[in-house]
Design a protein around this nucleic acid. Structure first.
Lengths: 336, 336
DNA sequence: TTCGTTCATCGAACCGCTTCGATTTCGAAC
DNA sequence: GTTCGAAATCGAAGCGGTTCGATGAACGAA
């Protein structure tokens, strides 16, 4: 019932406490005979060193902190998985803080990171965080932004070129002859969404005669997509957009569903482009054209960048890795 | 650049270290005047106590451990979110260990839980874990199983009645006149899947003339569902099942897609029932009938159960909460 | 004035481990 | 048989907090 401590192991092996510690952590400093004895004593007793004590003394936690906007979204789930890949390869663990779209929680997590002395933090920011991030850095904790870019140019980051993504989507629609475009995005305050819209605007501006109507929704659920699809379907055909760029596949799939249920044909009447290329995009009722973002790879790259900074391996130059998104064309924009 | 410790706060406030600790943690023991002084000193310096030190002395970590089979699956994502709800209401944090379908990782996480002295563990087991769980309990760490039941009857748990779920699905198909059923499940070694099959078998056994063909796939991705759907479509109509129960919505949605792409009508030729009722079930090309499991609620309940045990509030009786699943009927089994 | 009480504050031990410097051991060289 | 140096082992000092018993201050009662 009582915890097994290093003392118990020492006693059982008939050596001193420090020899146990050395045998376990720096075996080259201890004779083979004793290493064996200590190891088997530890095994028999089921000794597991207490992280808190190790950390307190050694000043290292072996932990990376990572905040994500919403873990229930598979995009972020993949990102985390990627970061875990890289971390475990370096013998580190990842402490995941899920913000659930809540700025307060997000800040709490950053404070927690400080409390537990994470050795580095991967931050996929939701709200404005400059002061908090500055503070982590002031404490000597390196930070890498994920799916975001630091405006001040002081933090390394791994992100997607969202302007290019939005542009890609809109250009594709324009190239298939659509002219009355709409952009449906959730929450204007999110940078990624704003930039995708901006990209779409650039594409439209280059096409005389084309127009772009921005539309904002509250959240990014498929339900809202459905509602919005029905709403669009209710407009007169002349008043309807003939091509829609969305900020998210959930929204897009719902949107397509809503349109079709009201008799609007996709892609013949309205073409739809999603964003993220989640698993379901390919097998939706109308397979969805979407902008793909390799989330897992991004998570891994970000963690590697962070580990390099922790290890001091990184050049002083801050890496700013930017992935270029890729358009996956499917039936929702191309009539067969 | 240097960490701010309790000493720095004490110095700044002109009091002793112990007074700082008391003012911050047990303010009723300290005069108001000093509490104020200490608080503002702490604020100005940005003092954040070091978790490792607190924990080492106090023996409490304020952490719950939680292992999940695969965080990329929204079902588990929701479960985690539910647990976090309950934990944060009790001032605790959740340390999430993602097993990624890997027994070794799962065990590592349990060991980590011991190292960091979590005060309780929520375990959604993937592989066999008895010895490890016993050990946690031996260390005085309460364990609650999530989405699983303890065969030995010693651990409290929160789970779904998977037998009932499988039965529900099969009975529904039978009641719509289907007779040649198939059960498509991933990985026979997973208890949940076995029990769903068992439930389906019970339903079929009660219907003379009905048959059930079990089919196993490697993993549970929509891709495999598509492949399998095409395979079924290739059979001669007489040899095809006319109703299919799946162990997972991803599989089911892919399956429907595969069938339709090969000209098999759903539900006219083949009816399909999914499992989990994920968000996309409702807006799939053919909206999917599915067995709903309230994951978030389950996560919350499990955490509450665990917290009660930690607090000693729980009666000695081990709670075994079993949720009954619910069938959500949609177009994939009911021609309109 | 002295003493007893209460309440606020402080000093110091301690949580379990790592690590550094000190001590012991042992074989080789004299 | 000493002496010396290197290698193996050990003792003890913290890491940064919490907490308990001790100390001191303030005040009313004798």
């Amino acid at each position: 019932m009582k915890r097994v401590g290093i003392r118990d192991v020492a006693e059982r092996a008939g050596v001193s406490i420090s020899t146990v510690s050395n045998a376990l952590n720096r075996p080259h400093m201890v004779s083979e005979r004793l290493v064996d004895r200590v190891r088997s004593a530890a095994d028999q007793l089921g000794y597991v060193p207490l992280q808190a004590a190790q950390q307190l003394r050694a000043g290292r936690s072996g932990l990376l902190g990572m905040t994500v906007i919403n873990i229930a979204n598979p995009f972020f789930g993949d990102m985390v998985a990627g970061a875990e890949d890289a971390a475990s390869a370096a013998g580190m663990r990842v402490l995941v803080g899920n913000s659930s779209d809540d700025v307060g929680k997000e800040r709490d997590h950053l404070e927690l990171f400080e409390r537990v002395q994470v050795e580095g933090a991967l931050v996929s920011p939701f709200g404005p965080l400059e002061p908090w991030l500055q503070r982590l850095r002031g404490r000597g904790i390196p930070v890498v932004l994920v799916d975001a870019i630091d405006d001040t140019g002081e933090l390394p980051s791994v992100s997607f070129d969202d302007v290019a993504g939005g542009r890609l989507a809109a250009e594709h629609l324009l190239s298939t002859g659509r002219r009355r475009l709409a952009f449906v995005g959730a929450r204007e305050e999110v940078r990624q969404v704003r930039e995708r819209l901006q990209g779409a605007r650039l594409a439209v501006a280059a096409h005389p005669g084309a127009s772009l109507e921005p539309i904002w929704t509250e959240r990014t659920t498929s339900e809202l997509g459905v509602a919005f699809g029905e709403q669009v379907a209710a407009r007169s055909p002349a008043d309807r957009p003939d091509g829609i760029v969305t900020s998210n596949d959930h929204l897009a799939i719902g949107l397509v569903h809503g349109l079709i249920s009201r008799g609007v044909r996709v892609p013949d009447d309205v073409a739809v482009v999603g964003y993220d290329d989640i698993e379901f995009a390919a097998i939706a009722g109308v397979p969805l054209t979407s902008v793909r973002q390799p989330a897992r790879e991004m998570g891994r790259t970000a963690a590697e960048l962070l580990l390099a900074r922790i290890g001091g391996t990184a050049g002083a130059d801050l890496g700013n890795v930017v992935y270029r998104p890729e358009l996956i064309v499917r039936a929702s924009t191309m009539s067969t």
